[in-house]
Structures are given as structure tokens and as C-alpha cells.
Design a protein around this nucleic acid. Structure first.
Lengths: 216, 216
DNA sequence: CGAATAGTGTCTGTTAGACACTATTAA
DNA sequence: TTAATAGTGTCTAACAGACACTATTCG
């Protein structure tokens, strides 16, 4: 998952075989006998779409008998957070991969929309998985520094606020947000400023490495 | 897990075979081809130790290559919460099962003690699993009605407070606790009173069924 | 200076904990 | 009445959101 243009986006792969052909699925793969489940998840994302340096966390294990019509499949779902700049070019140019925007329609319901504006149909139980991922992300957002995983090394407080707003789906008050972020101790001022194209440039912040939070 | 005598207890099974003989493990089993992973977890607990009517939730999936010296095992861990009265008698009388008290020694470290007062050695990576279960339970305690799963149908506010204190490991202020519980809307007064053996009997409360929280 | 965005000071309502108090029961 | 526990009223400090303000940059 990534935040692009104020919207939370998710990486999907188009299916070409079987009953679910034409639908879009979360990228997945099989665990090898000599790698941990965590390592398999990281490998799949790296192979398919991303450069190193993303945050990844186990989401949930889906084990219903009939969740895949082709047979018995137990899936350990993970979600990754990364700055959009860390996606490999293949994601942009491929017909098989898409960064689709997550939209909440109605209550508890969810849709994904391609950059061309089309609603993409989701394969298997992947809408359920996405719903849970969004719920987890929202829940963790204000007691962990998870949001920082969606930004580059250096960022402004306004960018961080946009990330939070994209995930939560509603605007936040600027002074309250700034105070909270600075009080949490997750970030530190770099002393540097934004490249500054127009008007007053904002200060750049970076993640504090010490302080037992989040990714290594 | 259950709260007994003001302490959080966990069900363990003694191992009799292999390298880990003599150590204590979380009860487990294998998923059958025609049941969901959720169903398998419930079946195992019912078969081994508990009557129906417990709360159960998936905890995490452990998939390190070398977590079991006998071979490659991926375990989907669940935790169950139940009133101690729902354990079958076999738990009390068996030599193979024990309800052991969870203790936090030092920071981040954890031990389990039998009712006889002995520290029980844990098999495999099960100390890690318990640590995570305790962490999850604590995290969810004040934004969900999870605590109610550890009490019988009817209970007093004092009992509920004892449950919370057992899980959190520190005392709570009575007025604040009462206000919070009543405000949350998870419980309702029954109008009935405690059996009353000594002194003023407390009012009995029960869980509200409506209000989209917790177990069915 | 004006436009636009960065960043801050202050007020207010809500909430959690602490403390002290009243209420109810059995002996 | 006394002992013991149930349950409440109130004060205070911390915190979040709203609002209005100041600060800095470019042209």
C-alpha cells in the first residue's frame, strides 16, 4: 500500500486463468520449504513490484475451506507500506499490475478504482482482506509511527498529515496534529528546508531511529 | 485463558515425547482437510479441555523455518477466553493438563507458574506466543468488551474490575472504572443482586447483546 | 506590498484519576 | 452500632479540537 495524490492505493495483479480470469487479486505466492513465511512475503513483493526498504506486517491468516474454488488454500496475508517512489517501473508500465485507489463506499463496503477511473473487480475473498488491512492500518495509526513508512526519508509535517488523512478518510486539525506528532517523539527536525518552489518552505523531518517503534 | 483468583491463567499440556519431553506446551492439533482453520482451533480446545461457549480469536501465524526441531511446522495460533467454570473437570484432575498462572518477570520477560507454585518450562517458541497473546489482550481491553468473555453470564462490576486488573497487572481506580464501563454501553444492569453472604450485595450486570461487539 | 503556505498561542469542552463521601447489608 | 463493601460527587490535570493569529517566502 502507498499514498498517492492524497489517496490510499493498493497493488493488484490481474488474473488470466481459471474462474477468476479478468478479476484483480492481491499479489501472492507460495512459501518455500527453506524460507520462513515472513521471508516468503517479502520475497514475493520484491520479485513482483518493489525495491527493498518497505515496512511489512502480518495481517491475518485466512483458512476457510471454500475460499478458493480451485482447492484447499490457506493464505497468510501480509500488508506492506512504502513510499510510492519505491515501486519499480514495471508497476507503472505493466498491463498486469495496477496501483488502485482504495475507496470506502457506504458503510463497511469497499471498492478499488484504477488510475483510469474504473472500478476493478476483486478476486476470491480479497475484498475482505483489504477491508481488514484498512481497519488494521487505521487502528494502529495513532499509537504507532506506521504512517512514516509511507513517506520518503525526509518529509514535511504537512505531507505526514496528508498521509494520515488519506488513511483515515477525513481531514485533521493542523495544530492538534503537529502537537501530537512532535510529542510522540517519533520524528526529529533535520534543520533542512523543503526545496521551496513557491512561498515559505516547510521544515523537513526524519524518523528517529532510537525509540522502540516500527521497522528496522 | 482464564482469570482465577485475581491472576491470569493459561491452559498448558505436558509433553511426553521427543526433545521437548517434560516441558509444557500450548494445546494444539492439526487442521483437517474438510474444516476451516478457525473450526480446527475450536475443535481442539473443546476436545481437550473446555465446554462450548468460549470466545476465540486468531492471534498470529508463526512460520519460522526452525521453530520446531522435528521439521517444518507453520502454526496458526489462537487464544480463547473463558470463565474458569467452563473448563471440564479433566483439566483439574489430569497430570497432563495444567492451568498455570502467567507472571511478568522483569521487562518483556514472562513465566508461568503451576498451582503448586512451580515455574513450568515452556516448549518450542511458546513463550513468545504467550507474550504476544498477553500484549494483544492488554491492547484490546479498553476498546472492546473482551474482558466480559472471562466472566460468567452475570457478574458484578467489582469482578469485572478484578479481571481488568489481572490482565493489566496493576490496580485501577474504582470510580473511573465504573464510569468507563457504564459509558461504553457494553453491559446492562439486571436489577438482581449478588447472592450476598456478607455485607452489602453488589448489583449483577450482564453483557448487552446488541451493540456490535465481540462474540456471537 | 500581496498571495500563499508554515507554524503558534490560546480557549474550551471532554475525560481520567484521586479523594472523600454516602448507602446498604449482616451480625 | 460496627465492620465491611457498594456506589457516587466533585476537584483537578491532561488533552484534543477549533480558531485566530504571527512568520516566512517569492514575485
Amino acid at each position: 500500500m502507498s499514498v498517492v495524490g492524497g489517496g490510499l492505493h493498493v497493488l493488484l495483479a490481474r488474473r488470466f486463468d481459471g474462474l477468476q480470469s479478468g478479476k484483480w487479486a492481491l499479489p501472492g505466492g507460495f512459501v518455500r520449504i527453506d524460507e520462513s513465511v515472513d521471508d516468503a512475503a517479502k520475497r514475493v513483493l520484491r520479485e513482483k513490484a518493489a525495491m527493498a526498504g518497505f515496512y511489512m506486517e502480518q495481517l491475518y491468516t485466512f483458512g476457510d475451506v471454500d475460499r478458493d474454488p480451485r482447492g484447499r488454500v490457506v493464505s497468510v496475508a501480509y500488508f506492506a507500506l512504502l513510499d510510492a517512489g519505491k515501486f519499480r517501473d514495471v508497476v507503472i508500465h505493466s498491463e498486469e499490475l495496477a496501483l488502485a485507489c482504495l475507496e470506502e463506499c457506504a458503510k463497511e463496503s469497499l471498492a478499488v478504482r484504477s488510475s483510469a477511473g474504473k472500478i476493478l473487480p476483486l478476486a476470491f475473498d480479497h475484498a475482505t482482506i483489504l477491508k481488514l488491512a484498512l481497519h488494521r492500518l487505521r487502528g494502529k495509526l495513532d499509537y504507532s509511527d506506521l504512517g512514516l513508512a509511507l513517506l520518503p526519508e525526509q518529509f514535511t509535517l504537512r505531507q505526514l498529515q496528508e498521509v494520515h488523512e488519506a488513511i483515515l478518510g477525513h481531514p485533521l486539525s493542523k495544530p492538534a496534529f503537529r502537537r501530537r506528532m512532535l510529542d510522540k517523539g517519533w520524528i526529529e527536525a533535520t534543520g533542512q528546508r523543503e526545496p521551496a518552489g513557491a512561498f515559505r518552505p516547510a521544515e523537513l523531518y526524519s524518523r528517529k531511529r532510537r525509540g522502540a517503534n516500527l521497522y528496522p
